[in-house]
């Protein structure tokens, strides 16, 4: 492998097919009907987040999947599990933080947002989960301009 490729922890990851755009239904265009927030809507929010290392989305790397998203609109809770590509992935916290920030920016503040690693898929699962669950540590992380820069890059839509 080339020198540059050696910089990446996982230079040739498995890639997965993207789900298509959500089909538009007549109900969604009907003013009188309320559409509850559902799993697919949450998944659509996070699937296009960029991976910090690869020019690929979290969906293409299978880091997030729709089955690992759970939302209860009535109770105002969201839970997202994500799966790092390799068990020692050093980016796990960063990916979790990106997901969390994306949801914080995109959901009404009545929601309680829980982001954690899919059980058994990462070496330091507990530590990462704890960091992500701690409101103060998340807030502090976002005060750090370098961290915020990386998170923002993950959340930027790709320039066309």
């Amino acid at each position: 492998m080339t020198a540059a490729a050696a910089r990446l922890e996982n230079a040739n990851p498995l890639i997965f097919q993207r789900a298509g755009e959500r089909a538009l239904t007549a109900v969604e265009e009907d003013e009188t009907v309320a559409d509850p927030i559902d799993d697919r809507e949450i998944f659509d929010l996070i699937r296009s987040i960029n991976d910090p290392e690869h020019p690929l989305s979290l969906e293409e790397l299978n880091v997030v999947e729709q089955v690992r998203v759970n939302v209860d609109d009535q109770e105002s809770t969201v839970s997202v599990e994500f799966t790092p590509t390799i068990p020692h992935c050093s980016m796990a916290t960063l990916i979790g933080l990106s997901i969390k920030v994306k949801l914080l920016r995109s959901l009404p503040d009545r929601f309680k947002i829980d982001v954690h690693i899919t059980p058994g898929t990462h070496a330091s699962e507990d530590a990462v989960n704890k960091q992500l669950a701690d409101k103060e540590r998340v807030a502090a992380a976002l005060e750090n301009s370098q961290l915020l820069e990386v998170v923002n890059q993950c959340l930027s839509t790709k320039p066309v």
Partner: peptide, 30 residues
């Protein structure tokens, strides 16, 4: 923030993408 909780999904979608861009504005890496 209020349109994020709109009853129509299509409105929420527009609100999410607009709000996302405004968050990136003037922020490092944005």
């Amino acid at each position: 923030a209020p349109p994020l909780d709109d009853k129509k999904r299509l409105v929420r979608k527009e609100a999410v993408s607009a709000r996302g861009e405004w968050f990136l504005l003037g922020s490092p890496g944005g």
